[in-house]
């Protein structure tokens, strides 16, 4: 087997430029978060501030107990959510991928319909509070992200296209049940797509703040993104109403720009380490060929 171990330098160059364009804004966010507020007003954003100022982080540290608890909430929700979601989603996708499964078209349509039509905020709220009674629990944060048509269809497509039907057939002949086929043949063969969908699910759980806004009144259960977001939302709301309500008494102070950016850093930070961790499932070799061989 002859493998070319050298990558085309143009590809490297292109990807380097692209990666930089993705990374530079992050650098900028970080630098703004440590720029002195007066410098920001005078000179605008810069890639290397004249005066470093960690005030924004000190300000956040002040609230560290709440932030730590919110991290706990978000991590718990994300971990449980991702595991359960991957199980449910891939199991359903597997059924949908099997051509001999009757009504697979009807069921696909059942899934697809939910991607376009939704009842809106109020019915959603009524179902969760009146029927499921999950308001002010972690369940309210977990359930909404458990399943989504998009993920089901992506996984289904992978199952149909990268796993030859013959493999399933031969497993059957060997006496393996559907469950066994699914758990010990299909899943190991689909690690790249599971990692991809897992990543997407992690990101959507991690970034979700709206569910907290709607269902959580107990501030001990606020998710990290909501905790950070609401400061910004409160400020921008107060700003927008300042002249409507009360400019005289409502002393509206915007959070410093650096604090905004520091919040973004705090929120994104841990996510940056998730992908490298998942990347081990992107390794070649765990492919059909390897299994067959």
């Amino acid at each position: 087997m002859k493998t070319n171990n050298r990558t085309n330098p143009f590809i490297i160059l292109f990807l380097t430029v692209f990666s930089l364009s993705c990374l530079i804004p992050f650098w900028l966010v970080f630098m703004v978060s440590v720029t002195n507020e007066k410098d920001l007003t005078r000179h605008g954003y810069s890639f290397w501030p004249n005066h470093f100022d960690w005030e924004a982080y000190r300000y956040l540290l002040h609230d560290s107990a709440n932030i730590a608890r919110a991290y706990g909430v978000t991590i718990t929700v994300t971990v449980i959510g991702v595991v359960v979601s991957l199980l449910i989603t891939s199991a359903m996708a597997y059924s949908l991928s099997r051509t001999e499964f009757p009504y697979r078209n009807a069921l696909s349509f059942y899934v697809f319909f939910t991607m376009l039509f939704s009842g809106g905020l109020l019915p959603w709220y009524l179902v969760y509070t009146r029927f499921l009674h999950v308001q002010d629990t972690l369940l309210a944060l977990i359930i909404p992200g458990l399943i989504g048509g998009f993920n089901i269809f992506i996984i289904r497509t992978f199952f149909t296209n990268s796993i030859p039907p013959s493999l399933v057939e031969s497993a059957k002949i060997d006496g393996a049940s559907e469950y066994r086929t699914y758990f010990s043949i299909i899943i190991p063969l689909s690690l790249p797509v599971m990692a991809t969908i897992g990543l997407f699910t992690i990101v959507s759980y991690w970034n979700d703040w709206f569910t907290s806004l709607v269902f959580i009144n107990n501030e001990k259960l606020y998710s990290l993104q909501y905790l950070l977001n609401k400061t910004l939302m409160n400020a921008s709301f107060l700003q927008s109403i300042a002249n409507k309500a009360y400019s005289n008494t409502a002393n509206v102070t915007q959070p410093l720009e650096s604090i905004r950016m520091a919040m973004a850093m705090v929120a994104i930070g841990p996510l940056v380490f998730v992908f490298p961790f998942l990347q081990k499932y992107f390794i070649k070799g765990l492919t059909v060929g390897a299994v067959k061989g």
Binding site: I88, M92, L96, G119, L122, L126, L146, I147, G149, E178
Partner: peptide, 25 residues
């Protein structure tokens, strides 16, 4: 295959179909 699909069917029903009455709004 039905059993494998059932958790997903139920979740979609709760999350998406139950609130669907909102369309009338």
């Amino acid at each position: 295959l039905v059993i494998l699909a059932i958790p997903g069917i139920i979740m979609l029903f709760i999350n998406n179909y139950l609130p669907m009455f909102g369309i009338f709004l």
